[in-house]
Design a protein around this nucleic acid. Structure first.
Lengths: 345, 345
DNA sequence: AATCTGGCGGCAACCGTTTGCCAACTTTTG
DNA sequence: CAAAAGTTGGCAAACGGTTGCCGCCAGATT
């Protein structure tokens, strides 16, 4: 190795090399490799042998130039920090790899602007994109979907295929769980105001509570991060509620820490419910009662929907334009009976 | 929207369109956009204005075809599940985005074969790659590094630039911490046998202990995942040691759960030390004493090293070929004084 | 035997950009 | 004022594939 700092990359093998070796035209090589029925089986065999021998790897840039297809899908998340996205990343990665697509990861950090800009710049290098947690307006989203095939996660927009995790339905279960434990004063710990799932969760909670003749309150909004849990915990304690449902587990786990510091016992003094069942929800202290969401699956389904749209030549089934995945309540130790004094105010 | 299933992508604007609009040749447009000094400032201004007006986005495939540079870097991790890689992913993502590079995520699932194969197939679409947790042999690694610019994380191989997190040095601290608490019988909970950092940690532990006239034992190997913590916990209890250091936090957290189930009190009966300080190490129960590793930083530094190699025209500094990042011991509540009876056997 | 048909392979254009080379023109220099 | 040097822009050839079209040939059809 003469200069290890800048490895000399050997000139890659091209179809022309294979053509020369087999004595056919480059176009024949191309066809043998991409349209197997189009050439004589014998010729094809020779070409394939040569390709194997030369260790040929097709140049995807060149391919993309004519075909327009890059076999690359972008996955947009906002904040790689959030374990929720781990699931999305894992699910999409699995499914994309299995289909032979490349997985381009983009962190748009909660910025709708970055989101549009990135997608716009890369649109020629992508076959499609998965938008986990878009901050875009419905208008913008639809506009973008006209530029490039899109599937959203936890976000609905007219005409844009989506995978939504039905946490709102789970919220209903959670509220009933709390009511059955004797809680009458439940508060919602709000996440980002402009977030679609946040609003959906809040509405579901209010609706279910109303169905039981209860009113619910709301504190926040808080950034959906662990540190915000402190402020959230204080706000909840302030309301004198006996139970709360937090926008997500990150916030809930943050609250747990603060509550412990303040000497508020969970669940004796206050019951806490989270959302998502992220990594850590089962081993925090106390283990968190939460709405278990099939996050990985959401990622996998989103990719499957996108790819089926890309490969399908006929018009896509209008039925499968949107998929809703169910959640369920996982009861652990952060919820318990309402404190005696407050059972019936 | 006529057929929302397959959005018509408008034919993208090319430099030829800009050339036509400004009345210059395409080559001039190309130069105006990529080699600003090469054209008359006035012409350039006109071209830039036209480009802006037409909302021009350069086609990166076409660019890559001639230039050979794709502005894409692959990040290889083994198991997106492991929170350790979250840090790597976050760090690399930040740094790559800042430099205007695309971030291609590849999960090679602990398979050296997949690792080689993927890199080989994609080598023409990549400017370089970051190998976090390579399972490759030194030979293979060096071979691959000759094909494509590489930076490894937590893995050393002759002539391949690397970022290594100096957990072994931290292990020394951890051992001394345990000794100062009166522990005399410490066991190492081994991770994957063929893993480079695993061996390094074990050696460091043995060396430090030997320096204090102590012998240490080793249990395992265990897959570095939470579920393996159960088996690991049982194995450690079996040794009757009073303290252990686990290959990583995932394993340590898994152990904590099992120990609690078995009624073994941590730290009263057994002290546990983890490695890495991943997400969750601070809120598990009890919070884990661990070696805090600058994981994000490792990702950032790895990318910085790679990019500097790519842009530098002269030979790279031989000095900066490898970087070692320090760790420190973060003492939480999973370590405490050795149980009285066992202090001096 | 002449014609038709279908299979198979080659030619050449094209995808969008970069870049070596050259020509025209302008400015500096002696 | 002529020659040299420097600017600036255009031409055309790549880069590595894909694909429409055409021609050749063998076998089938009449």
């Amino acid at each position: 190795m003469d200069n290890p700092g800048s490895p000399k990359r050997a000139r890659p093998v091209t179809i022309t090399d294979i053509a020369a070796l087999t004595g056919v035209a480059p176009s024949t090589v191309s066809r043998a490799l991409t349209r197997p029925g189009r050439v004589n089986p014998a010729t094809r065999e020779r070409i394939e042998a040569a390709a194997r021998e030369l260790n040929y790897v097709p140049n995807s840039q060149a391919r993309a130039l004519t075909s327009g297809r890059t076999r690359t899908v972008a996955v947009l998340v906002s904040g790689v920090t959030n374990p929720f996205y781990f699931g999305i990343i894992r699910g999409t990665q699995q499914e994309l790899k299995a289909a032979g697509y490349a997985h381009l990861l983009i962190d748009v950090e909660d910025s709708g602007e970055l989101e549009t800009q990135m997608l716009h710049r890369m649109r020629q290098s992508l076959d499609g994109a998965i938008l986990a947690a878009s901050r875009l307006s419905e208008r913008e989203l639809i506009g973008l979907a006209a530029e490039i095939p899109l599937v959203t996660v936890n976000r609905e927009a007219r005409g844009v295929p989506s995978v939504v995790i039905d946490t709102p339905a789970g919220i209903g279960q959670a509220v009933e769980h709390l009511i059955s434990l004797g809680h009458r004063d439940i508060v919602y710990v709000s996440g980002p105001e402009r977030s679609w799932p946040n609003e959906a969760r809040w509405h579901a909670m209010r609706a279910t509570a109303a169905g039981h003749g209860l009113q619910v309150r709301r504190v926040g909004p808080f950034p959906p991060e662990r540190p915000s849990g402190s402020a959230a915990a204080d706000a909840v304690v302030n309301t004198r509620a006996t139970a709360c449902i937090a926008f997500n587990d990150l916030l809930a786990i943050g609250m747990l820490t603060r509550l412990r510091d303040r000497g508020v016992r969970v669940p004796d003094d206050l019951s806490v419910v989270g959302c998502d069942d992220i990594f850590g929800a089962d081993f925090c202290h106390p283990p968190l009662t939460t709405l278990t969401a099939p996050i990985d699956q959401a990622g996998r389904v989103a990719v499957a929907m996108l790819l089926s749209r890309l490969t399908e030549r006929s018009a896509p089934h209008p039925l499968r334009r949107s998929v809703v995945l169910p959640t369920h309540l996982t009861i652990r130790q952060s919820t318990g009976p309402a404190p005696a004094g407050t059972d019936r105010p």
